[in-house]
Amino acid sequence: MKTTVLLSHARHPVSDRPQLSRLEAQAIALAAEVDEAPSGLHAGRNETGVVAALGHGLTALDRLDLADTTDPLSALAAFLTRQRFDLILAGRRGEGGHETGLLPYRLAAILGLPILADAVAITPGAAVETLVVDQAMAKGARRRVTIRLPAIVTVHPLAPPPRPFAYGPMRRGTIRRHPVDGSANAADLDTAEERPHRLRPKLMRQSAGQAAGANLYVDPTPEEAARLILAYLEANGIRRYGPLNDR
């Protein structure tokens, strides 16, 4: 199964150095389960951050020589059309750019591929040219989807952790640099309305309403206490336990 992982130019939140995004490192770990020699794909001039991907399990890295301000969509689509990968993995949102998370969907539309989001596990399907993808859902549920290849799959943060970094494989891995035809990518990213980021506080998570101790019961019998607890759980819709005795 010929697999590639899309790599963005993430930066470390504190030091601002280029680094490999954790989610993409997790995607590499997933890719290594279905392909013994997965490759990576990065569009940009700076490769200091993404070479770490070779140390996390990629055997080769394709780099499209593209300015950081250029929209990489058409160049990526042209490259992926030429290479005919069976499986294209990506994070939910690439880091370092506009971070809309739309790029895999745009690629899917251009290449005519199906796309699945939020994968936590992938295994080859029983039939050839199929893939079984476990999607993460709310409350620990999973959706197991069998999909026909080729396909694009994005990875959820609950996927298995990245493989440990190894220096030797990073040095041995091949980096293939591909020049990009300048006329093909006229569309520049819009940077006009950018301004420095301002941290905004999130809403406080607090208990629902009741004043502290409004629902206080001192020394009820254990049976009474058990009934109160189950009634509270059912009234607030946490769990439903069916009909209970002497209620």
């Binding site: 506009h98 971070e99 309305e193 980021h197």
Partner: peptide, 9 residues
């Protein structure tokens, strides 16, 4: 926020 939380639009 964009660009790893460095800028915003």
């Amino acid at each position: 926020a964009i660009r790893n939380g460095r800028a915003e639009i």
